[in-house]
Simulated scan of single mutants.
Amino acid sequence: MGQSLRVLLIDDDPADSVLIQEAFSLLEQPCTLMVLNSGAAGLAHLISLEHLAPDVVLLDLKMPEPDGFMVLAALKAHPQLQALPIVVFTISTSDEDMRRAYALRANAYVVKDLAFETLCQQVRSLVKFWSLARTVPCPSQSPH
């Protein structure tokens, strides 16, 4: 499959983050996971452009300001990051939240299942899909 998929998780819930990190650690295919615990940290990290962008961002919605919706809107409005795939990865089952996330141009909306076996299946599926998906790299971050 080539290069290791680079995933950025932005989630303020320590328990959820630990479970998700554990699910990633059990993957058989190569994958690099970076975890940031707030929307502000996620935005600052991505907008700094001093590093190679992740291949995909897993973004929680329910965080203190900036919440996931604000982070999503800011990333999709940023000229160099608007093509970055953003998967809303949340516990929210609200149709309104889902509609709003897609209106803000989320690439996918996945409801986290915190039953560990199911969460592991979700992580495997996400990694498999995004490892195969072809995306546009951020222009100023091409590896040269």
Rank of each mutant, 00 (worst) to 15 (best):
Q141H: 14
L33V: 06
N107H: 12
V111T: 13
F69T: 01
L72I: 11
L52A: 15
D60A: 13
E117I: 10
F69I: 03
D13W: 12
P64Q: 07
A133H: 05
F69H: 02
Q3E: 15
P64C: 09
L52Y: 04
M1T: 11
L46K: 05
V7N: 06
V18E: 14
N37D: 14
D95Q: 10
V110S: 08
M63E: 05
R134Y: 02
L81E: 07
E22F: 03
L84C: 00
Q82M: 09
A101D: 04
A53W: 00
S48D: 15
V57S: 03
C138A: 06
L119I: 11
V71D: 07
D67M: 11
Q80I: 02
N107S: 12
R134K: 15
D60T: 00
A133G: 08
R6D: 13
L9I: 03
E28Y: 10
R105V: 08
S38R: 07
C31G: 07
L75F: 00
A73R: 06
P79Y: 03
D60H: 12
R99N: 10
L104C: 01
V88L: 04
T32K: 01
L75S: 11
S92I: 12
R6P: 03
M70S: 15
Q141D: 12
I86E: 04
P79H: 05
Y109T: 08
N107W: 09
V123I: 11
V88T: 00
E117K: 14
A77R: 07
A101F: 05
D13T: 14
K112D: 10
Q121Y: 12
K62D: 14
H78W: 01
Q3S: 11
G42H: 04
L33E: 08
L59K: 10
F129R: 03
P64M: 07
F89H: 00
E22W: 04
A73N: 12
K62N: 15
S17P: 00
D67P: 01
L9V: 02
A73T: 12
E22H: 03
F116Q: 02
Q121I: 07
V136R: 10
L126H: 06
D13H: 15
P85H: 10
L114H: 00
Q29V: 04
D60E: 12
G42K: 09
A23D: 09
L9F: 08
Y109S: 08
A108M: 13
K76G: 11
D55T: 05
L26R: 12
L81I: 09
A77Y: 02
L61C: 13
S25E: 15
L8W: 02
A40K: 13
S131P: 01
Q141M: 14
H51D: 15
D95M: 01
P64D: 06
T90H: 04
T93S: 14
D12G: 08
A103M: 02
Q29R: 10
S17L: 04
E65Y: 02
D97E: 14
E117V: 13
L5F: 01
M1N: 05
T118G: 00
L61H: 11
H51T: 08
C31H: 04
